[in-house]
Design a protein around this nucleic acid. Structure first.
Lengths: 223, 223
DNA sequence: TGTAATAACTGACCGCGAGTCATTCTATTG
DNA sequence: CAATAGAATGACTCGCGGTCAGTTATTACA
């Protein structure tokens, strides 16, 4: 009979609706100022019920973050599956990430929490593994395109693909984080537009990993 | 009379001894798992007394962080005041920062907290400004050497000094953060030594901001 | 359809820890 | 040796994450 299946579905949709509520509250107030009471009220459930579905407030936070990760993954896959030339794809990926930041700041900030284990006081192993697994997929996506670049002779072959991925990704992420937290400060005190800095930085990084052939490609694309 | 002065000194040294205690506890347990009760006990003071000197736990945390900032500043100044050639100085600075991470991980992690305003639930404006001011000094140090590089024709002059500083600094910081949190993971799952990646990344970044003349310098230094 | 068994949900309650403040203690002064 | 001001105390409050005994809803079965 289909009762077990229906229950399964109901449980799943309850989990989702709890995430909906959590997302609303977390987006408004961030991790620290959000309370489980408020999330429960928003979800129109008792606080205890939340704990039937998630181990802790932080688990719930990461559950919301996973949604963000999915959004980002989808955006990346859109670019990658086009199968455009590598250089163009790389540029598009960088731009997509920037776009993701601008249109999904709240998700972006959550990613940051995920990468800061010092802050994980109550994250369960299961949730952590869940996240890790998904995160891995992102790395694979990016490394894939870099591999292609190397075999096509566009990206330098004296560098290890994953290393390149880490460097590019980390560089972009950290500049975006800085934009998030100090854009105005840099604007006012140093008269710098960090968005422009990010663009330049991405270009510098990209150039530095391309072969001569790749650089020609790049200058053609940039026209 | 010198009583006011003595009291002033006593107050100052009390502040210091509170930071000593706080540092000990924070280093052991991090911000979240440390309690004001434990810090008070370590300082051999009542909890209330701590609040006569610092507005909040987070203020105290930042007070400890400032020490780290000072250590780093001192390390940088050592390199800079040598007045060695720009390229060599830049490399030394990068290495110093890496060394700072390895010998002062706890301080390093605190810097990270400072750059994440989402986590500032209770930081007082005064403390924040204090930190900002000191932070500014670091930027100035770094920007100084870059300026020198530009006037000497070693660093490209189509880039803005502060921008370069931000990019280099941010890039190194974020890779170090990743080393801190995911070194083992990358080692095991991807067979990558992130310390090597950091070295490479620093080199790539440096190369990309140098003029042809600067690159010659670099290859000479690297021999 | 009535009832036992099971699953889902509830919210009063607990413990912990940040921050407060009325009170006590100590040093200074005239 | 009071009077006074400043430093230090720690019992207390309050908010919040997390728990669990009890209640309600759902399913299985006679």
């Amino acid at each position: 009979m289909g009762i077990t299946e229906r229950k399964e579905r109901e449980k799943e949709s309850r989990k989702e609706s709890i995430i909906d509520a959590a997302q609303k509250v977390f987006f408004e107030k961030g991790l620290l100022l959000s309370t489980m009471d408020e999330i429960a009220e928003t979800a129109e459930l008792a606080k205890g019920t939340l704990y039937l579905y998630y181990h802790s407030k932080e688990d719930l936070y990461l559950a919301v973050m996973m949604r963000g990760l999915m959004v980002l993954k989808t955006m990346f896959d859109e670019v990658i599956t086009k199968n455009d030339p590598v250089v163009q794809t790389m540029i598009r990926l960088a731009d997509k990430y920037t776009a993701f930041y601008h249109t999904h700041k709240n998700y972006f900030r959550m990613l940051h929490f995920f990468n800061t284990p010092q802050l994980h006081k109550q994250v369960s192993d299961e949730m952590m593994q869940s996240c890790d697994r998904f995160n891995q997929q992102l790395w694979t996506s990016i490394t894939g395109i870099i591999n292609r670049g190397i075999t096509e002779g566009i990206i330098r072959n004296d560098l290890i693909p994953i290393e390149i991925a880490v460097v590019l990704w980390t560089n972009a992420s950290s500049l975006l984080m800085r934009i998030d937290s100090q854009y105005e400060m840099f604007q006012q005190k140093m008269n710098i537009d960090l968005n422009v800095t990010l663009q330049k930085s991405n270009m510098l990084m990209l150039e530095s990993i391309l072969t001569e052939h790749g650089k020609l490609e790049l200058s053609r694309v940039m026209k």
